[in-house]
Simulated scan of single mutants.
Amino acid sequence: MARLTGKVAWVTGAGTGIGEAAALALADEGATVILTGRRREPLEQVADRISQTGSAHVQPADLTDKAQVRKVGAYIKATFDRLDILVNNAGVNIVDRHWDKLTPDSIDTMVQGNLTAALYCVTVALPFMRARKDGLLIHTASMAGRFIGNLSGPIYTVAKHGIVAMSHGLNMQECVHGIRSTVFLPGEVATPILDKRPNPVGPEERARMVQPADCGDLIRYIACMPRHLVMNEVHLTPTHNRGYIAALQRQL
Rank of each mutant, 00 (worst) to 15 (best):
V33L: 14
A9D: 01
A23C: 05
T53E: 15
D105F: 05
L115Y: 09
I94N: 14
A25Y: 08
T12I: 09
N93I: 12
N93L: 10
H98C: 07
E29F: 10
G91M: 08
A25M: 12
K66W: 06
A56P: 02
V72W: 00
Y75W: 06
I34P: 00
G54H: 08
I76T: 05
A31L: 11
H98T: 14
G91P: 01
T109K: 12
I18V: 15
L43I: 06
D65V: 12
E44I: 02
I76A: 01
T16F: 05
A31F: 13
T116E: 02
V92H: 03
M110H: 03
L63N: 04
T12Y: 11
S51L: 08
G113S: 13
G113D: 12
A27Y: 11
A31V: 09
N89M: 04
T64V: 12
G30L: 10
D62W: 07
V87R: 01
T32M: 09
T53M: 08
T109L: 14
N114A: 05
V33S: 12
L86H: 05
G15R: 08
I50L: 11
Y75R: 10
G15N: 06
N114M: 05
A67I: 07
R40P: 00
E20H: 07
V92P: 03
T79P: 04
N88G: 03
G19E: 08
D84T: 08
L83W: 04
Q52M: 02
D100Y: 02
S106D: 06
P42E: 03
A14C: 11
R70H: 05
L43S: 13
D108L: 05
V46Q: 07
D96T: 09
A22C: 15
W99I: 15
E44P: 04
G91S: 10
L35P: 11
A14N: 10
A47N: 08
I107H: 12
G37Q: 02
P60Y: 13
G113K: 05
L26N: 11
V33N: 11
Q112E: 12
V11S: 04
G73Y: 10
A61E: 12
E20N: 05
G113H: 10
L86G: 00
A9V: 00
D81F: 02
G73P: 04
Q68D: 13
T36N: 00
N88S: 15
K77L: 13
T53H: 15
D100G: 01
H57V: 15
V72R: 05
N88K: 01
A61P: 14
A14H: 10
H57P: 00
K66S: 15
S51V: 11
I76V: 14
I50R: 14
N114T: 04
G17K: 12
E29W: 11
I85G: 04
R39C: 01
L63G: 07
Q45H: 09
G73E: 07
L26Y: 12
P60R: 08
V87A: 01
H57Y: 13
I94K: 13
I94L: 14
P104L: 05
A61D: 13
G15T: 09
L24P: 03
I76H: 05
Q112C: 03
L86A: 00
I94Y: 13
W10Q: 03
Q52A: 10
I34Y: 10
L35H: 09
D28R: 15
Q68K: 14
L115A: 04
D108E: 09
N89V: 04
I107C: 10
I18Y: 02
